[in-house]
Amino acid sequence: VWGFFDEVAVQLGDNYETLRLVSDKIKRIQQKGYTNIKIILNKKSQKDIQTITRFCKDLYDYSFVANYFYQEKIVRLTLQTSPKIVNFFNGEWMEWFVFMKLLDFFREKQVPVACLRNLSIMFPNEDRHELDVFFLVNNTTPLCIECKTGEFRKDIEKYSILRKRLKLDETQFLMCVIGLSEKQTQGLSSMYDVTFVNEKNFLQQVEKSLSHTD
Rank of each mutant, 00 (worst) to 15 (best):
G3Q: 11
F4Q: 06
F5Q: 07
V8K: 01
V8T: 09
T18P: 01
L21M: 13
K25C: 10
K27L: 12
K27G: 04
Y34P: 00
N36A: 03
I37S: 06
K38W: 00
K38Q: 12
S45A: 13
Q46C: 07
D48R: 13
D48I: 10
Q50S: 13
C56T: 12
D58M: 13
D58I: 10
Y60L: 05
Y60T: 00
D61K: 09
F64H: 09
V65Q: 05
K73A: 09
V75M: 09
L79T: 04
T81G: 03
K84R: 14
F89T: 05
N90V: 00
E92L: 11
W93A: 02
W96K: 11
V98C: 07
V98E: 06
K101N: 14
K101E: 12
L103E: 13
L103F: 07
K109M: 14
Q110I: 03
P112E: 04
V113Y: 14
C115K: 04
R117Y: 04
L119N: 08
S120A: 10
I121D: 10
I121Q: 09
M122I: 09
N125M: 02
E126N: 12
D127R: 15
D127N: 14
L131R: 13
V133S: 02
L136P: 03
V137A: 04
T140F: 08
E146M: 06
E146F: 02
E151N: 10
F152H: 09
K154G: 09
E157Q: 14
E157H: 14
K158L: 10
S160Q: 13
R163F: 14
R163S: 12
R163C: 10
T171R: 13
V177H: 02
M191G: 01
M191I: 08
V194Q: 06
V194F: 05
T195W: 04
F196N: 09
K200A: 10
S211H: 08
H212Q: 12
D214I: 12
